[in-house]
Simulated assay, not measured.
Amino acid sequence: MTTAREYDFRKVTMDDMPMLLEWQAQPHVREWWDSDEQYDQEELDDPRVSRWIVLVDGSPFAFMQDYSVHGWEEHHFAHLPKGTRGIDQYIGDPAMIGVGHGTAFIGARMGVLYDSGAPVIATDPHPDNERAIAVYSKLGFEPSGQPQETQWGRILPMLARP
């Protein structure tokens, strides 16, 4: 388990693409994150999505994004209140898995989102991703329906409120 640490979040830039592609090639990421496409500048500038490199002690080790659930037509979370944010993330560095970093940095980002006015935070892990579901449950997320197919793949909808 990690000791209390501070996590920093910096915006993803085009300079991060080689690192992100390296992380996405890791088997533990590839199992659940099915894209190995590089972002382009237009995607990084998309106001619907905030993409972050997560750092601890100044070292990058994870990727996280939060997004407006109302930014896409027919999004599976579009029924949620205005201001709701969705989150996705992965730990890129395999040495950082299983020691509490996921729970810690996701919780830190959730605090920022709540402080910014998000009434609900939504996430949608694959129903078979037991590790992610366990982490989300520790952070107060609860399933909000049955597993379902979406345009982004099979998901278990989960919600957390402040």
Rank of each mutant, 00 (worst) to 15 (best):
T13C: 12
T150W: 09
F105N: 15
G153V: 11
I133S: 00
A104I: 14
T150D: 08
S68P: 14
D8Y: 07
W152H: 14
G71M: 10
S35H: 02
S137C: 01
Y67A: 14
H79L: 10
V12A: 01
H28R: 04
D36K: 11
L139T: 05
D16Y: 02
Y7A: 05
D57Y: 07
D15P: 02
I121P: 00
F63A: 04
I133D: 00
V12G: 02
E142M: 04
P119D: 08
L55F: 06
Q89T: 10
P27E: 09
S144K: 01
Y90L: 04
I53V: 11
Q151D: 14
T150N: 07
D93H: 06
H126P: 05
R109I: 14
P157I: 04
Q148R: 10
P147T: 08
H126V: 11
F61Y: 09
M14A: 13
P162M: 00
P60Q: 06
V54L: 05
R131G: 07
R48S: 15
V54G: 05
G86P: 10
L113D: 00
G107R: 03
P127I: 06
D16L: 02
G117W: 06
G100R: 11
G145K: 00
Q89S: 10
K138P: 03
D93T: 12
V99L: 14
D16P: 01
M64I: 14
